[in-house]
């Protein structure tokens, strides 16, 4: 892990890591990865990955409208709104 690796990850995660912190962050993530790398020694041949602790299956929901309009309550929490829209700096495709 070096500064450029951290910069790439920070970009993916939309975090801003200052140059003065980059080395420190790189070091701590290197330490964490060293811990995690113990996994590589495990024999996992033929073991299927487990995404959920229980072997349950998804329940399906009936297609019935249950949600009323609560725009006012939700937008009371928003940093910036106008005419019912959430505002962000201009989106450029």
């Amino acid at each position: 892990m070096d500064r450029s690796d951290i910069a790439k990850l920070a970009e993916l995660a939309r975090l801003q890591i200052s140059n003065e912190h980059a080395d420190e962050v790189a070091q701590s993530i290197t330490d964490v990865l060293a811990l995690v790398d113990q996994l590589q020694a495990a024999n996992t041949e033929g073991v299927s990955p487990m995404a959920h602790p229980l072997d349950a299956v998804q329940r399906l929901r009936a297609d019935v409208v249950t949600e009323p309009n609560q725009r006012e309550a939700f937008q009371a929490q928003a940093p910036a709104t106008d005419k019912g829209h959430y505002l962000v700096p201009k989106v450029i495709d």
Partner: peptide, 15 residues
Amino acid sequence: KSVHEGFYDMSGIDL
């Protein structure tokens, strides 16, 4: 949807 007109230098988001 992002709406680009009508919000000055901002975009409006309709979810």
